[in-house]
Each structure stands twice: as C-alpha cells, then as structure tokens.
Design a protein around this nucleic acid. Structure first.
Lengths: 225, 225
DNA sequence: CTTATCATTATTGATATCGATATCGATATT
DNA sequence: AATATCGATATCGATATCAATAATGATAAG
C-alpha cells in the first residue's frame, strides 16, 4: 500500500540517491579530500542504508569520475589535477564545438525555450549563492544543447568532463565569485543559437569554454583574441 | 540453493565477470542487436546467478557504453552509429596525441618491454583468429601507453572510445580481415617511442588512429598524406 | 635486529528475499 | 465507441547474510 498518497512521478526517489548526492557534494566542495578512503560499511552506517545501496552510489560516483574503486582495496576519492582539467577542457572544445555545429542543422523547436528556462534556474541558484546547484544547471544547459546533436554515446563523456571541470573550478577558486555573471555568460550562446548562424554559434561556444577559468594564454591561443 | 555439496574446482568464481564478458562479447560481435532488451531476471536465470550480480554486470557494461539503462524501463543494447564513431576517433586523436607527447617526456623503463609483450599477445590472438581478443589486447596496448601520461582521469574516457571504435570496426567489416596486419600496425608506434623523438611518436600515433578504418578523406585530412 | 610465516580483521563479492513502482492489457462505465 | 479504473506482470530498489580475498599485525626463526 502506498501510504504516501501523492508521489506523482518519482524518477529517482531512493536512498541511494541521497547518499550519492551527499557524497558528490562533499567531494565537489573538497570537504572530502582526494585520496580519502570510503569504506562501504562505514558509509552504510552513516547513511542508514545497506551495503548494496552504498555500492550503487559508489558505482555512480565512479561513472562520474569522482571516486576510484579498485578490487579488494576499497574506494578512494579521486584526484583532480590541473593537467587533467586542461585536457578535459580541450575535449569539451572538440565535443561541444562539433556538437553545436550539428545542432544548428536542425535544432528542436523547444531548444531555445528550454535553454532560457535553465538560464533562469542558474540565475536563481546564483542569487541563492548555491554554487553547486548553479554548476548542476550549467551541466544541464550544455547537455541539453548537445542532446540535439544526436550523438548519445558522447553524452556520458561530456558529462564526465563537465563534472571534472566544475570540480576543478570550485577547488581552485575558494573565494566567493560573481555567480550571477557566471550564469549570464550563457546568454550569448542562446542568442547565437537563436540567430541561426552556425559559425557564430560555434565561435560563441568555443569562446565560452575557453574563458571558464583562466588557464593561461597558451591553452586556447586561437580563441582568446 | 547451492546443491553443489562441495566447491571442488572453483576457488574464485566471479559470476558477475562471466556474465559481463559473455554479454560484452555478444554485443561487440553484433549477436545482440542494438535496441535488444536485457531483462535482469531473464539474464539471472540464463547465467545461473542472482539479480544483483546481473545488475553489477549491466552497470559495468553501461560504463563502457555498451548498454543504456533508463529508469524503470529496463536495459537495452546501445546503438553504434558512424557519426559517433567518427567523433570518438577525433577524441582519440586529441587524447592519445597529447598523451604520447607527455609520455615521451619521461616514459617508464618497462614501457617498451611491456608494449612488445602486448604485441606478442596481439599476434597470438590474430593467429588464433580471435578478433575480440585481439581488440582487447589492442585496448591494453593503447591504455598502457597512456598510463605513462599520468592523466588517470582521462583513462576511462579513452577506454570508452576504444570500446566503441572496436565495436564499430567489427560491425562494419563482416568479412574476415588480416588480423596479423592489424596487430603489426603497432610496431611503428613502439619503434617511435623507442627512438625517443616526440614529434615522430606523435605523428605515428596520429597516423595509426587515422588509418584504423577508412572513414573517407575528409575526417582526418591532415594525417593521410 | 631482520625477515618470513601465520592468524586476525577489514573490506569487497555474491546471493536470496522482500518491497515499491511502472507499464500494459482487460474490463467496466459513461 | 471512448475513456476510466483495476489488476497482472515486469522491472527496479533495498536489506540481510554468507563467502572470499586482501591488508595488517603478531610471532617466531635466523
């Protein structure tokens, strides 16, 4: 019997999700330092759930690249180096640059509308000072664009790069930054898509990715004018 | 119910690994067509294991991009399109090209020796006509090189691209090809690494990746002379 | 004092079972 | 005939329990 009368649609209502979100938050914010061990039974006790549930969460975290699980030697929080972040940014240039070129050949009718909705949510998160939620909507924004590229096998890779980039960005800028400005930077991408010009949209995306964090002028020399 | 009174022969029977390998094989060979549903209980009955074990295998397959699991709607074999394969090959150029440049700055002493060992195994698999095992050693070869690049966060992405590329290659060439020639193509990479020339090694890697399958002259115009 | 062997312990691996939810088809009502 | 409601089936979600394995530390031999 469902004693919760109205649970209209719960795509993911489970306890595994709670543990997953809590761990993801702590890793992204650096509360859990790289190398920290994550024993399954200890986590199960902490989250009041079973070992299998914890393992489910850890497998999801592994798929996002936030932890590494090795055989019988336990699970540890993964590292987050600058060299890897740079390479991930380069991969994003490749994936999202080619992706948006494909999108412009036939974007879905609701794309711009949905992107504007996500921008609204980003601004709301920025107003609330929640950088983690802002980053989450930022990922949704970029993946929503890429969805129209019709390359679903690439989406998990893009997601992984986005997570790593966000984690790197947060870890390397401890001071409170202007979150609203970060959100508003997506405006030009929406405008370019709405304009219908493939080259302009591609350039906007390349410039956006190249200016997320300042990696020095030699990383993306052709984009920073 | 374990009706086997004693476990005479199996000190370590990882059933999840067996199911994983069998499913991976069938998907890579195309025996399981894209879109095919994979009910957990059905697989559990077929492999004589429990549902949780099957789920573990399915999660691993998802991490390699071979299946997609969506909510309460089951697990299906993922698609394998040419557009995605091309983009994966481009990602490999980026990842492995930059990776081998880093490797040449300080390769581990055993690198060339281990690569020659893997080449031997590739030749053995080619001699046995086992294209799947050849592909597996090919992945080990490329990942072993990339290991010395010290970018561990990129390895899962590279692995995913390698699996997709191999699946694509097998699916698009039903005829028996010259497996030995495929294996021997890695010789020039080992030679270039042994030579110690960064540019030569990078060029060898780029050429190797660009000539794995013939995607037309416009995909990698600068590599194919 | 060093090193090798062995017992202990912590951690992961596997399985059975129960419960919750979604999907689909059949039946009944309007 | 169209729609709404109900129930059957399939799938996912969670937990407890047991087995297997790697890591750790103690102990004894050299």
């Amino acid at each position: 019997m469902a004693y919760f009368p109205s649970r209209p649609t719960s795509p993911k209502p489970p306890k595994a999700g709670a543990a997953f979100n809590a761990l993801k938050r702590d890793i992204m914010l650096g509360t859990l330092a790289p190398g920290t061990g994550l024993p399954e039974l200890e986590l199960a006790a902490h989250f009041q759930c079973s070992q299998g549930t914890v393992r489910e969460a850890l497998l999801q975290l592994q798929e996002e690249g936030l932890v590494r699980r090795q055989g019988h030697r336990g699970t540890q929080v993964s590292e987050c180096t600058e060299d890897e972040a740079i390479e991930m940014f380069r991969l994003r240039q490749q994936i999202e640059g080619n992706g948006i070129a494909r999108v412009m050949r036939g974007p879905s009718r609701t794309l711009v509308k949905e992107l504007n909705g996500l921008l609204e949510k980003m601004l709301a998160a920025a107003g609330a000072g929640d950088e983690l939620e802002l980053a989450s909507f930022d990922r949704d924004f970029h993946r929503r664009i890429f969805e129209d590229a019709s390359l679903p096998a690439l989406d998990p890779i893009l997601h992984r790069c986005l997570v790593h980039n966000h984690r790197f960005k947060i870890s390397r800028s401890p001071m409170a930054r202007d979150l609203e400005a970060t959100a508003l930077r997506h405006r030009s991408i929406i405008d370019a898509i709405e304009g219908g010009d493939v080259r302009r949209a591609t350039a906007a995306m390349h410039h956006h990715i190249a200016t997320i964090v300042d990696l020095g002028p030699e990383v993306f020399p052709e984009v920073i004018q």
